[in-house]
């Protein structure tokens, strides 16, 4: 590994991760977008004050996830009967008859993985925003956060709720619980957070590269 930095100094180039096109690294102004010329993959899109914003959103996400577990999520009422379900109940609806695997899968993709991603992002970004040296293991933590992204499906669950509501409304009266609103906010936060996260900038901050 030592001879890696001899002939081609790292930090001089940027390689499109999707199509392997090679570009000379240059600093991208805040608010600008650098996209790969041939496959249009966004390579860098730094935003002003993005770090602080992402930390705030990640912390809010964590709080909301914990809250959304316990508060009633949806309440159904029809002719005197009423039943309400929390997020935990919704996941546990798979607990009967050999579907137990789905309980874990669902708790993971709806709650655990989004929470973990938020925690990892906070861990990585807090020292960067406050101009401190990166925490130990910040690089693998940020890599893991990126890997988790497709598996954190809070927003997919949000749309699922909307579909389920459409299906139920002609059957019974549905009341939206506190957790439903918390979860709606959470979905919005996750979406905004992803729009502001520029991983190129984070990698640069974790190990500064020389840009011309």
């Amino acid at each position: 590994m030592e001879d890696a930095a001899t002939s081609e100094a790292p930090g001089r180039y940027v390689v499109c991760p999707k199509c392997d096109a090679l570009y000379r690294a240059r600093s991208v102004p805040k608010g600008g977008v650098a996209a790969c010329v041939r496959c249009h993959t966004v390579l860098a899109a730094p935003r002003r004050k993005a770090g602080m914003l992402i930390i705030c959103l990640a912390l809010a996400t964590l709080i909301l996830i914990v809250a959304a577990i316990f508060f009633p999520f949806l309440t159904l009422e029809t002719r005197g009967f009423s039943s309400s379900a929390s997020l935990l109940d919704i996941a546990l609806s798979f607990s009967g008859g050999g579907l137990r695997l789905l309980v874990f899968l669902m708790l993971a993709v709806v709650l655990a993985l989004p929470a973990m991603r938020a925690a990892l992002l906070t861990y990585v970004l807090v020292p960067l925003v406050f101009d401190r040296p990166p925490r130990p293991l910040a690089a693998p933590a940020f890599r893991m956060a990126a890997n988790l992204k497709p598996w954190a499906m809070a927003e997919v669950f949000g749309i699922g709720c909307a579909v389920a509501l459409v299906k139920i409304t002609d059957l019974a009266q549905v009341a939206l619980g506190q957790a439903f609103w918390m979860f709606s906010v959470l979905v919005a936060l996750v979406v905004i957070q992803d729009r502001f996260l520029c991983s190129w900038s984070v990698w640069n901050a974790l190990s500064p590269r020389k840009t011309s």
Binding site: S7, P10, Y13, V14, V15, P17, A21, L22, V33, V37
Partner: peptide
């Protein structure tokens, strides 16, 4: 890096005898 830099013929990292990182876009020998 910017859009203005439209090249007709794009050199790939492979053709430049480099390996690109698929995570952080860094180039290595």
């Amino acid at each position: 890096m910017e859009r203005a830099l439209a090249q007709k013929d794009i050199l790939t990292a492979r053709e430049a005898r480099l390996v690109g990182c698929r995570h952080c876009a860094e180039a290595w020998p």
